[in-house]
Simulated scan of single mutants.
Amino acid sequence: MSELDLQHALAAAREAAQAASEVLWHYWRRGVDVELKSDDTPVTVADREAELAIRKVLQAALPDASIYGEEFGKDEGGQDLMWMVDPLDGTKSFVRRTPFFSTQIALMHRGELVVGVSSAPIYGETMWASAGDGCWFEGERVRVAATSSLAQASISTGNIKSLTADARWAELGALIRESNRIRGYGDFCHYHLLARGGLDVVIESDVNILDIAALAVIVREAGGAFTDLDGQPLTLDTRSVLAGTPALHAMALSRLQDALKG
């Protein structure tokens, strides 16, 4: 995509995130009933209405692009461009009145993630990025920290249930013991902190691509590395994350891979 097209797409994604935030604020104030999907995960009217608000903006901005959304699935738009939307990532937090939830909007061009917007309206922050133009936090360009030593590193973990039964679990424990600090910020929060230099490594093992697509663009444009736990690039089937400063990502990946070898 040309620079002009990317800026147009980024502007649309930011507008769509703002439209979603108005829906989320409305239901945050009044409360919502909770339903369960077929996979036993919760969904609310806020999720659905926020996605509809997002789709309206994105369809008007790029009518030839397809949209893959958490609540309404993938439509039959163009193959080269696909929006990836999670209107309310963190529904469990939302319904329990915990402000750690966000709206995630990314654009994929021919298999490459090129635009990302992460909006956490109740928490009070938005980050955005487009390929080649850096990462921005509330209008200020930000970068990951320069941390290269594990002894100085802050590590954050998110969803790690499946990792507890993995051969890499013990090695994760070793990484934590050797680090400076361990936290479990989770969701959008630890990726935002990583992108602006507030921590150094993020590890998750139970995610959906819609949860992390925008955040991958943001972290990469902030100078960080973002892969799955096997070091592979993100695809629609990605289920895990290893993100961090370049040096610490490489070190953690090597040690986790060695753990799999026994």
Rank of each mutant, 00 (worst) to 15 (best):
L6G: 04
Q7F: 13
Q7S: 12
H8C: 05
A13Q: 02
R14S: 14
Q18N: 10
A19K: 11
S21P: 01
E22C: 04
V23H: 01
V23L: 01
L24G: 06
L24F: 08
W25S: 11
R29Y: 00
V32N: 08
K37N: 07
K37D: 07
R48Y: 04
E51D: 12
I54C: 08
R55W: 01
K56E: 15
Q59C: 02
Q59V: 09
A61W: 06
L62K: 02
D64C: 00
D64S: 12
Y68W: 15
G69N: 09
E71K: 11
F72R: 07
F72Q: 05
E76D: 14
Q79P: 02
D80I: 00
L81P: 00
L81C: 08
D86Y: 04
T91V: 07
V95S: 05
T98L: 14
T103E: 05
L107G: 01
H109M: 00
H109W: 15
V114W: 02
S119N: 15
S119K: 10
I122D: 06
Y123E: 11
E125M: 11
A129H: 04
A129C: 09
G132Q: 01
G132N: 05
E138L: 06
E138P: 03
G139L: 09
G139P: 12
V142C: 10
V142A: 06
R143Q: 14
A145E: 01
A151I: 00
A151C: 00
S156H: 06
G158W: 09
N159W: 12
I160L: 14
K161H: 13
K161L: 13
S162W: 04
L163F: 10
T164P: 00
A167V: 12
A167G: 13
W169Q: 13
A170E: 14
E171W: 03
A174C: 05
I176N: 00
N180M: 07
Y185I: 01
G186M: 13
H192C: 09
L193R: 12
G197W: 02
G197K: 04
V201Q: 01
V201D: 02
S205R: 06
L210Y: 03
L210C: 02
I212Q: 10
A213I: 07
L215W: 02
A222L: 06
G223Y: 10
G224V: 05
A225G: 00
A225V: 13
L229D: 03
Q232G: 07
L234C: 03
V241W: 04
A243S: 04
G244P: 06
P246Y: 11
P246L: 11
L248T: 07
M251F: 13
L253Y: 05
S254M: 07
R255T: 10
A259I: 11
A259L: 10
